[in-house]
Amino acid sequence: MTDEPLLRVSALSKFYGSRVGCDNVSFDLWPGEVLAVVGESGSGKTTLLNCLSTRLLPSSGTASYRMRDGQFRELYRMSEAERRFLMRTDWGFVHQNPADGLRMTVSAGANVGERLMAVGDRHYGKIRATAVDWLSRVEIEQDRIDDEPRAFSGGMRQRLQIARNLVTGPRLVFMDEPTGGLDVSVQARLLDLLRGLVTDLGLAAIVVTHDLAVARLLSQRMMVMKDGRVVESGLTDRVLDDPRAPYTQLLVSSILQV
């Protein structure tokens, strides 16, 4: 652990006209830390995630990222070329719907290899070997490497998307409802896998979810959002076991007990 954060976010706001997307969000993210952003639909979590990953530009506020050379760069002042380069090397983005994050008409191997080729890898054998390795790490059988993701189940697609994002060894991964739309047993396997990968690779991650169980399993720290504002933040266990804000109390007590 270094003594400097990986990402510094300060007073980030995004307005859609007079409507609030997210308002005055500030936090630091440390290397290897998983931060969960929870809240109900429309609370601004996805807007926040899109702003942080530079897919959206915020209305005001700053976010600086510590590059591999140790220098902080302000994300919204980088050129588009630099941002896109960051996106496909040092960052990952796992979409809720795998079809948004994968190329559905090219094979699984090419999906994993695309980032390698994008950063200049030009050796077919090595790219393929890396793809095989990553498929096995996300528990996809080797003989599926030349199949298109269209032929994959929902859970496999999501695991493929994760492999595709992690192949360049990113330091920060954004995840938008990574287990959304999967049935519970598949969710459990995926969470197990994600937890393992995050620990093994020392990834920092920002996970947006409305599922408190996912937040509890994956994250060390969490932020609760409502109407675009952060109503409570703290260690995940503390927030879930001892919620202070009335809204968090409501959220925690709304979990269905089986």
């Binding site: 496909r88 094979s107 080729m117």
Partner: peptide, 22 residues
């Protein structure tokens, strides 16, 4: 057009990769 502007040509090799894989 953006990919041309930013010289992002990794995708072109994806096509060639697919050829070899198939």
């Amino acid at each position: 057009r953006k990919m041309h502007a930013l010289e992002e040509y990794g995708l072109m090799h994806v096509k060639l990769y697919e050829d070899i894989a198939k």
